[in-house]
Simulated assay, not measured.
Amino acid sequence: MTDHRITLAEIAALAEVSPSTVSKVLNQRDDVAASTRRRVQAVLDRENYAVPGRRMPAVQDHPLVDFVTSNLDNAYGVEVLRGVVRYAESTDVEVVVSRMPDARVRRDQPAAWAERVVASGRRGMILVTSDLTAEELAEFRARSVSLVVIDPLNPLPGEHVSVGSTNWAGGRTAVDHLIEHGHRRIGYIGGPESAECNTARFNGYLGALRAAGIAVRDEYITGTSFGPEAGIAGLRHFMALEEPPTAVFAGSDSTAVGLIQEARRLGVRIPEDLSIVGYDGTSLSEQTVPRLTTVQQPLQEMGRTALRLVLSQAAGDDLGSHHIELATHLIERDSVATLTPAP
């Protein structure tokens, strides 16, 4: 006698919806009401329903790890991915690249993402600058999904693993460099206020100013993202001030690129009128005119470290530490001028 496998139509009848609605829930469509989605998912979970063809993921010759990012278009993410892929090649691991799921689906059905990862046979996940909720983290943990976050946008509970760089020291180094070149009016264009890496870089900025006896000026602090739009808006803001800064620490190379492009449009000369230090050390910093002085993060090493930690978790190894910080260093190029004191 064979076990009866419940069908999609039977799930629909139990949930009092149409079979097409059940299909939409299974395929993460966003045109299903939240209350209906929850009701259908409850029946799916209770009946232990699995999509035909995905009931028992085949044993894979090479473990699969998901590399998840909200932005596939920035140089930062590409550099991290290079590190992941190169380490994967040496360990017979396959890497799958995907985007963060739709925010509305994540909010209405936090378990669905974790279920999909498990059903697809993923060994673990690497998430880049992601804002995971406590509920989502709990769903992954409940299913024993090995997970590492690189530069999380929100604080993670202590049991979860993250990888970053020495952001405070990097911010301090950037501003110390500007001070050493005679600058005392120094602006900061930061990223998302909730991002831990932004908070650390900003505190490094503050620490350098205070150590040099330079007053912190609120009008010199701006920024809401790590994208070029923050650099454009930041420069416009600074140039509208009665006494604009002579130098700027940009929280990312992408932000610095936006600033340099806007400076060209406004007729502001870099570095003669305004010096700038970026952050990340991506290929963008070598392509600007002038070439960008920047604090380099070891992005490829961060990717390699993240994958190593995912595999160690999956093997049940003792990680020792749940947060890894890798050292940054300054790359001096052409975007900082020495400020000559007024006679």
Rank of each mutant, 00 (worst) to 15 (best):
D253M: 12
A58S: 01
R122S: 08
L26P: 01
M100N: 08
V248G: 01
P155H: 10
A315S: 14
E136W: 06
L153W: 03
S285M: 11
A337H: 10
R201L: 08
L26M: 10
R38I: 12
T294V: 08
A250T: 00
C197K: 11
L284K: 01
V51Q: 12
E229F: 00
V68T: 12
R172S: 04
T36L: 09
T199R: 09
G213A: 11
A315N: 08
V295R: 06
L292P: 03
G207K: 04
A314L: 14
A240S: 12
M239I: 00
V148Q: 02
G303I: 10
A58L: 05
Q28D: 13
A263P: 03
R82C: 10
E16H: 15
G191P: 10
E193M: 12
R55D: 02
V117P: 01
V289R: 13
A34H: 01
V289L: 04
A263G: 05
R54T: 11
A15E: 08
T133L: 01
P155I: 11
P245H: 06
S98I: 14
P101N: 12
N48D: 07
H181N: 14
F226E: 09
T338C: 08
P343Y: 00
P192C: 00
V128E: 04
E47G: 03
L299Y: 05
Q261F: 08
L147I: 05
P155K: 12
D108R: 04
P110T: 15
V145A: 01
P290N: 05
T166A: 14
P155S: 13
A327I: 07
T328E: 09
A263C: 13
E229K: 08
Y279D: 05
P244M: 03
M1S: 11
T69G: 04
V248R: 04
V161C: 01
V336W: 10
G320K: 12
A327P: 11
F140P: 00
S23P: 13
V105Q: 13
Y188M: 03
I11N: 05
A208I: 02
D45A: 13
L339M: 02
D108F: 05
S335I: 07
R104S: 00
V216Y: 08
V95E: 14
A230W: 04
A42S: 15
V51M: 07
R55Y: 03
R185W: 05
S70D: 14
A240H: 12
R172E: 06
H181T: 14
T288I: 03
V216R: 12
N71K: 13
E193T: 06
Y76H: 13
V310E: 06
L153N: 09
L127A: 15
T91H: 15
L284T: 02
A114H: 05
G53K: 02
V148K: 07
P244T: 09
I260G: 01
